[in-house]
């Protein structure tokens, strides 16, 4: 493990790199302040080396919190792992302050082991492994009170010091927003010589207050030149279990994801209903992808679109 960057690190790509007071005493100050050096994070080469056997990388993004990024990540991973038993899937949870994957994957309380080739991710299934900061915390109450540079350092370690091995697809579950975690993961994963090095999926819910933030995230991807596979609309419509009446809990007053996708010129991959059974299974970490229901039917279509977007 390397020493973390100083608390008020201006960021290695910043123009003040190596020159502000926080840089005094940092072991990298001479590298950062050298005007002749190209300002590239040395971690990028390490990440590329560590992930050389990972075929595809998929970011699960949304500007908005609580729309189901983590749930969708879990559902997609489990459905894909079931449909492609000969392929290997990895999940990396880069939500540092609010990791949800350990619970959703039924791996609460598991530990990460250190081996000669780095941290071993936690095995969820024969062909699914997971890494999350949740595995490094002593208790669910432990808070990660970190500013950006420390979060970035952690994400770099997750990418470069975890023994991911051979993976057909690495899914990266992200926190809401367009800030440190997003910029870091994009800068580490994006290979300018191969535009298909990383793709993104956007998750939203149907109401305008969520779409508002999701549009910002789509524009983030466009600015960063990350190809968007498409948008998944979650929590769209709720069917009462008693009378079968359908209600719009989060009403799509502005046309929902479909209208937003048309406006932003990105594909809509499909919609997942609001199903209390899914919420319950997520809390318990159970796999429901073998059950036939409206959610798994929708997943089938979404997953085949995702897989056909690669290669």
């Amino acid at each position: 493990m390397q020493a973390p960057p100083p608390e008020h690190c201006p960021g290695v790509e910043s123009e003040q790199a190596g020159q502000v007071s926080a840089c005094a005493g940092c072991p990298n100050q001479s590298i950062c302040s050298d005007p002749n050096k190209k300002r590239e994070d040395p971690g990028k080469a390490l990440v590329a080396a560590a992930l050389k056997d990972v075929k595809h990388k998929l970011l699960i993004l949304s500007g908005k919190g609580g729309v189901g990024k983590s749930t969708v990540t879990t559902l997609l991973t489990r459905y894909l792992a079931r449909s492609y038993p000969d392929s290997n899937f990895g999940v990396l949870d880069i939500d540092i302050c609010g990791p949800s994957q350990p619970r959703l994957m039924g791996a609460l309380g598991e530990n990460v082991h250190q081996s000669g080739s780095g941290w071993s991710p936690v095995g969820i299934d024969d062909n699914v492994c997971l890494m999350s900061i949740g595995f490094l915390l002593g208790s669910v109450d432990d808070a990660i009170i970190w500013r950006g540079p420390k979060k970035n350092g952690m994400i770099r370690q997750f990418l470069s010091e975890v023994d991911w091995g051979n993976l057909d697809l690495l899914l990266l579950d992200t926190p809401p927003g367009t800030s440190d975690e997003h910029l870091s993961v994009v800068s580490y994963l994006k290979d300018d010589s191969s535009p298909d090095s990383v793709h993104a999926i956007i998750v939203t819910t149907p109401q305008e207050v969520a779409l508002l933030d999701v549009r910002k995230e789509i524009n983030f991807c466009k600015k960063q030149q990350i190809p968007i596979v498409g948008v998944i609309e979650n929590m769209s419509g709720f069917q009462c279990g008693h009378c079968g009446h359908s209600s719009e809990i989060f009403p799509a007053k502005t046309g929902g994801a479909a209208a937003m996708c048309a406006e932003m010129e990105v594909p809509l991959l499909g919609s997942l209903p609001l199903d209390p059974a899914i919420a319950k299974a997520c809390d318990a970490g159970e796999d429901i992808t073998s059950v036939k229901n409206p959610t798994t039917e929708a997943l089938e279509g979404i997953c085949s679109k995702i897989m056909s977007s690669f290669n």
């Binding site: 960021g11 950006g148 367009t178 549009r215 910002k216 995230e217 524009n219 983030f220």
Partner: peptide, 14 residues
């Protein structure tokens, strides 16, 4: 514009 993202790291947010 309401669709403009604010792509800032921590120090600018602070």
């Amino acid at each position: 514009n309401r669709t403009d993202p604010v792509i800032w790291r921590g120090p600018k947010k602070t």
